[in-house]
Structures are given as C-alpha cells and as structure tokens.
Design a protein around this nucleic acid. Structure first.
Lengths: 152, 152
DNA sequence: CGCGATCCGGTAACAGTATAACGTAAACCG
DNA sequence: CGGTTTACGTTATACTGTTACCGGATCGCG
C-alpha cells in the first residue's frame, strides 16, 4: 500500500503551474487533491462537502472557481454529461481526451486517442471550424458490467 | 401563410413515428415545431416560454417529457455542453452525430461523420466498452467568426 | 359493451447545478 | 512604497431538471 502517489501528482501539478506562470494556490491544490483521491467523478457540491471544515462551510463559488482554474490548466476535466469533474490522469502535456462512462457502475476511463482527435480535427477544419474545447463522452457499458449483465 | 418547409419536416416526423409505433402527440409535435423553427439551440425553459398560451403557463415536466421523447426517437438532440436542445436535421435514419458549437455567435452545426463514428467505436471496443449514447461536441469558433475576429 | 392496463399530460413542490455582484485581502510589479 | 491584479469569502439568486401524485384518454380484450 502506497504512501500516496497523490503527493507526487500534486507536486507535478505544482511544477506544471510554475511552468505556465499560474498559481496553484492551497485552495486549488486541495480541490485537485480531492479529485485525485476519488475513484469516480465528483459533483461540485460533493467537493464542497469534502472541503467543509467542521461546522464551517464554504460557498459554491469557491469551488467553482477552483474547478474553472483546474480545467483551464488541464489539471482536471469536466464531464458534461454527468455535471461532474475528474482529475486528469496525465496533465503533463496538452492533450484532448475522450471519456468512456459506464452508465451501470459509474466507472469513467480517460482515453487519449489520436485517431479520434485527428478525425475530429479534420472534420472541423472541413467546415472551417476552429475547435477550442472538445467534449467527447461515450456513455455505455464497461467491459466488467457487460460481462456481469450478459449480452443483451 | 405557410409553405414552410417546417410542415414537411413535421409530416416526416409523423410518418417516422408511425413506422416506429410511437405517438407523436400534438404536444410533442409542438415542441418539435418550436425546435425546428429556431435557428439556434433552445433551453427547456425557453421552449416552455414559447409554448405558453396567453396567461396560461405550462410546468417544466411537460416540456421535459416531450423532449425526452423526441431525443429518444432521434427527432431532437440534447447539447450537453449548452444544456439545450436542437431539432435533428436528418432524423430519417438512425445515426450518431457530432456538433460544432461556435462559442462566439452560438451557431451550431450538426455533422454526421463516419470517420469520427468509426474511430470512436473502435477505440471503445479496444477497451471492451459498449457505447450506447455518444456525446461529441466541439466548442470553438465557426468559419464566419474566425474571419470577423481575425486569427488570434 | 365493460374492464383493466397503459400511456399521456397537468400540477405543485422541490432538488441539483451554477452564477452575479460585491467586498476584502493577499500577491505581484513598477 | 503605491497601484494593479488576482484570489477568495459571502449573500443572494438564477437556471436546469426531477419527484410524486392525479385525472383523463386510449387500447386490448373477453
């Protein structure tokens, strides 16, 4: 059992932000830590709850601001179809990712598939469209759940 | 006053539903008409507003139920990143579509690109994932707006 | 026809997600 | 240091979507 690979990840985030010239404040770092510690996507209000400090509760904008920052820097992703957020599994380099979301067990897998990225990019440029933020989420059944439930 | 291509579209929807053995009730037909008459995605509450009949206002579930139906039959699509809905531009055959969403002017273009669909499907099956509902939305700048604003 | 099953839609209340607007403090930079 | 920008706390509120319950229409069938 590991002494937190988390801490290493967070230090990676620190150095990434230093490179980008942006500030990974304690608040933002904490939100990132919560996301990374979770094995599933978290809603903003779940994060809010996880951040509460005894009786003292934070307000939504605090968490939304931190999330905006993390998403902007590529340290986290928003899953539009779930209204939830995940920590990025490989934030070190810029990338466009895709998500496989199991409707049955909630498992989310982040892909970084070049063939998909390329086909998107080329379809967009055929229309003269300049993509900025791709949202690619496949909702379906993961391998484990397909087996469990049997082929339909 | 109307030779509206709309009426033709709605009749197409009628016959599609007959084929599918489902009922395109007046309520649902009306929501579809509103979507098709709009040149941009509409939120559920905008549709609600468009459906209001003088002083008499409908309640949200009415519209959400109609939208659920339309989306299920492929007559409309939900844009997850906008929390909004559009009428489908080619509902006649089952298809998985992709959307180009201009963050600047709001223009939304529906694509039906096989290369994208194939690359998604193959990436999914590599993971043993069985896709059911694809969500593919590219947020960026459309051709017209790219020109207007100039290359950055 | 009579009867149950099912589908559709009206209504009230509410749950969940996200933002606006405003103020204060801390960090950065000349 | 003084001015500017950035981050964060707080209140209130807007927007999006759902639960639960009910009555009426429609359909299948004996």
């Amino acid at each position: 059992m590991d002494d937190e690979p988390d801490e290493a990840v967070l230090e990676g985030a620190d150095s990434l932000c230093r490179r980008l010239g942006v500030r990974l404040t304690p608040q933002r770092r904490r939100v990132l830590a919560i996301l990374r510690a979770s094995d599933r996507p978290l809603g903003a209000y779940e994060i809010l709850e996880a951040m509460r400090d005894g009786a003292r509760a934070l307000a939504p904008p605090t968490v939304y601001r931190a999330l905006d920052f993390l998403v902007e820097q590529g340290l986290a992703h928003k899953l539009e179809s779930l209204h939830a957020f995940v920590g990025c599994t490989h934030p070190d380099h810029p990338h466009s990712s895709q998500f496989l979301i199991c409707a049955d067990c909630g498992l989310v897998t982040e892909l970084e598939n070049d063939a998909i990225a390329r086909s998107l990019k080329s379809a967009a440029s055929e229309s003269g469209f300049e993509p900025r933020r791709p949202v690619v989420e496949l909702i379906g059944t993961c391998a484990a759940c397909s087996v469990k439930e049997g082929p339909r």
